[in-house]
Design a protein around this nucleic acid. Sequence first.
DNA 1: TTGACATATTTACGTATATCGATATGATCG
DNA 2: CGATCATATCGATATACGTAAATATGTCAA
Lengths: 124, 124
Amino acid sequence: MYDNGNGVGVVSAALEVVACCVPLGVPVMTEEEADATARLFRTLGDPARVRIVNILSVAGGPVCACDFYDSLGLGQPTVSYHLKKLTEAGLLEREQRGKWAFFSLRSEAVEKLAAVADLQAGCP
Amino acid sequence: MYDNGNGVGVVSAALEVVACCVPLGVPVMTEEEADATARLFRTLGDPARVRIVNILSVAGGPVCACDFYDSLGLGQPTVSYHLKKLTEAGLLEREQRGKWAFFSLRSEAVEKLAAVADLQAGCP
DNA sequence: TTGACATATTTACGTATATCGATATGATCG
DNA sequence: CGATCATATCGATATACGTAAATATGTCAA
């Protein structure tokens, strides 16, 4: 595996969480899938992270980490902590621009999240 | 407010969580909405509760509390605890049948969950 | 390379949560 | 009513989590 510059670590983390979880209505769910699915939901189970995702969604593109301090009313280390959680879960993508870090929603993760939460998917 | 026999307590709890949360992509999100939305996700942020929802989804109807002990590999008090969490969040409906308690997914909650997790809702 | 600035990590701490054993509540049947 | 069975609650405990202060890492400009 080579480094394509888009962050190998981030991609492998995504494989561990977002990629491993399954729709809630899946016919048969393994223990590992239940764990991964729960981890995805737990990642979104904090008001600060919900707001981060909302802000990124509304922005429609990359947002600087520094822009979250005021909007969230949280300190820099705390925001960094939440951004890392979201990124590790595979929901966010990190991009270095000069000395600033920009974050954006990963479209694959967005699609997966909707699929995971859709309980009526396979219903008649 | 009168008791229609479907459990007033459950309905008011639903109003407090499922009903109060908003889609992640909503243009403007209040602090209370972020809290409620995070609480909904946190409710699904446990493997046992994910499996309960999955089992109920596959079953397609009410399931007895006692049927979860073996499938989850958890003790009766713990299962009762998780069922209460899900019910309080407005995701489940409790129904007394003789001395047994049956639980089922609330269709409104199922729809709301899908809407909340759908980030592409208002996108072009 | 050094200084300045942005972000990440470490450390510490209080709170929330999941689990279990023991017990209480509630429902049915004799 | 009293016995029995199912579920809920309580008490205790161990772990996970969110937050901030202090510090480290990393990036650019001069």
